[in-house]
Design a binder for these strands. Structure first.
Lengths: 229, 229
DNA sequence: GCTGGTCGCGACAGGATTGTGACATCATCT
DNA sequence: AGATGATGTCACAATCCTGTCGCGACCAGC
């Protein structure tokens, strides 16, 4: 399984850098931002596996970020660890009731935070387990019949799903329309070659996301391929 | 969901009584014992949904109880919240690494502990290998032959019950009509595939509740699945 | 610029798949 | 026997998917 993705919202540069370094050393992929609003954008762009959120941050307050994360369907289930100042007990309570899953009181040791993140990840991971194909920012769970890009669930029709699955089983390789027909439609299908184009288009439309390049490459007079970015 | 069962291991009688009272008021079923060994016996007798464990207790130490709970297959998955004295940071780390899911520093307010328990309870869903299956807001007691959703009891016909049970044993996974026939009706049944649709509908009708999305997902040209939410 | 070939895109009608209500049958219980 | 509830099928409606066209944009070479 790919590296767990964290999102750290912390406006103290020194602490942010320290944690970034430590978590990367632990094998996490981690995005860092000091700003609440930017954090929300990042979370929507690519849904993280866990959010570490400082209570006192610039822009939108921590609890507001927390609430908004919970409100958005895509991020509603993501565990949140709040960082809070010592003694602010009411904040803790409110944080937990808002939807934070845990909090850590400043000052804390990186070891403690890492241990807590680990504890939550261990609790979450098994639920997500499945045979998952993964190419670039795309991932496809064949048993659950689900496709995800940057963590966001994507709806595809049956044929588009099979097409994408085939591409993801052979990333980077170029297939002619005939090969795609054989592989996705079946050897004995009597279908126009150009029909493949239409499904390629539907697939592109399905997985497109603003600001992200299209991973489906057209190779003129040869066919199509899925780029591993 | 039937009342969540807690196990509280606490040797301070005043605190134990206070927490017992508060948790009962919150609708939990709670067993209390001051002794570590007795706690292990109780946990084996009736596996709780969550354990609140004081670090310093009579008999076997808290961390030892924690470790043994984790070692026993029946209780390995049960979340544990440790109660620990202020400032014992190393203990926290060791506790978490041993398998505790969270800890609360004394002195704490009952509200805080209750909020934490609530936070963890909200997070438990996937495949507990016990007698009661639980997926999303659904829970199914195989022995009592009862299904509840968001605490409300739901009446299902025998076939719908078996169907739901099978889904809950494999949450999120998509099954074809044929697979469902094999699993729920039996391998040698001679039944129309479309009959599955009808029972899916009856199941949906049975578990539907106003304001809550339908957890049964139709995957066109593939089958059905129960969403793990 | 022009030309032949190739590809993207919107639209659409037919086809395939699924949702739904109704019904006859069968087993169980009173 | 009668009542009740569960079950498997069917027909029909509602959706969704799909293969094909046609048109225009684009590309490479002349």
């Amino acid at each position: 399984m790919s590296a767990p993705r964290l999102l750290l919202v912390e406006d103290d540069p020194a602490l942010a850098e320290l944690l970034e370094f430590r978590f990367k050393a632990e094998g996490y992929t981690i995005a860092v931002t000091p700003d609440g609003d930017e954090a929300l954008l990042l979370a929507q762009e690519e849904v993280p596996d866990l959010v570490v959120l400082d209570w006192m941050i610039e822009g939108t307050s921590g609890i507001e970020v927390c609430r908004r994360l919970r409100r958005d369907k895509a991020t509603a289930h993501v565990p949140i660890i709040m960082l809070t100042a010592r003694g602010a007990e009411d904040d803790k309570i409110r944080g937990l009731e808002t939807g934070a899953d845990d909090f850590v009181t400043k000052p804390f040791s990186p070891r403690e935070l890492i241990a807590r993140v680990g504890a939550i990840m261990r609790r979450i991971r098994p639920a997500l387990a499945g045979e998952t194909l993964s190419v670039g920012d795309l991932s496809l769970d064949a048993t659950a019949h689900k496709v995800t890009r940057k963590g966001q669930i994507i709806a595809l029709g049956p044929t588009e799903f099979r097409l994408l699955k085939f591409f993801m089983e052979h990333p980077g390789r170029v297939f002619s329309r005939g090969q795609l027909l054989d592989a996705v439609w079946g050897t004995d299908s009597d279908i126009e070659l150009r029909t493949v184009d239409v499904h390629i288009r539907r697939l592109r439309k399905g997985i497109e996301q603003p600001g992200v390049p299209d991973p489906v490459r057209t190779v003129r007079s040869a066919g199509y391929s899925l780029e591993a970015v």
